[in-house]
Computed example of a mutant assay.
Amino acid sequence: MIKVSVMYPNSERVKFDTDYYKNSHLPMIQESLGDALKGLELEVGIAGRAPGELAPYVAIAHLKFDSVASFQESFAPHQEKFAADVENYSNVQGELQISEIIAL
């Protein structure tokens, strides 16, 4: 199993509409990816390491798939639609990382 993490860097100038992302963007992704998507989680940053410090990421979405190929095949046909929606919830682009999930 793999996890695709989309991480939105945080700063004083970042705008991020969590309600839109949670209630519109992520449901659109779920519907578009269908059964290929095995799990979805949203994390919203609330603090950094030191008191008063911003969280490094304003939000992180974690999407689970059986394999990298499954992610690529299900995501590619919708990539432009997903990218075009970013302006509706943020002024920053997410950083994407694909990780292998290793159970301990």
Rank of each mutant, 00 (worst) to 15 (best):
Y20F: 15
Y20L: 05
S24Y: 15
S24F: 15
H25P: 06
L26P: 09
P27V: 06
P27T: 03
Q30M: 12
S32C: 12
G34P: 02
L37Q: 01
L37S: 05
L37I: 01
K38M: 11
G39D: 12
L40R: 02
L40P: 06
L40G: 08
L42G: 08
E43G: 09
V44P: 05
G45L: 11
G45M: 04
G45E: 03
I46G: 10
I46W: 02
A47L: 07
G48N: 07
R49I: 15
A50H: 11
G52L: 04
G52Y: 01
G52V: 04
L54Y: 01
A55F: 02
A55R: 05
P56K: 02
P56Q: 01
Y57C: 09
Y57T: 09
A59F: 08
I60M: 15
A61C: 15
A61I: 04
A61K: 05
H62D: 06
H62N: 09
H62V: 12
L63I: 03
F65Y: 12
F65K: 01
F65G: 05
F65C: 00
D66H: 14
S67V: 13
S70C: 14
S70D: 12
Q72A: 14
E73K: 15
S74Y: 10
H78L: 00
Q79L: 11
E80H: 04
A83K: 10
A83R: 14
A84V: 02
D85T: 08
V86Q: 01
V86I: 13
N88M: 01
Y89V: 03
Q93S: 09
Q93N: 09
G94W: 00
E95K: 13
E95A: 07
L96A: 06
Q97G: 15
Q97N: 14
I98R: 05
I98L: 10
I98S: 06
S99R: 12
S99Y: 07
I102L: 10
I102S: 07
L104F: 09
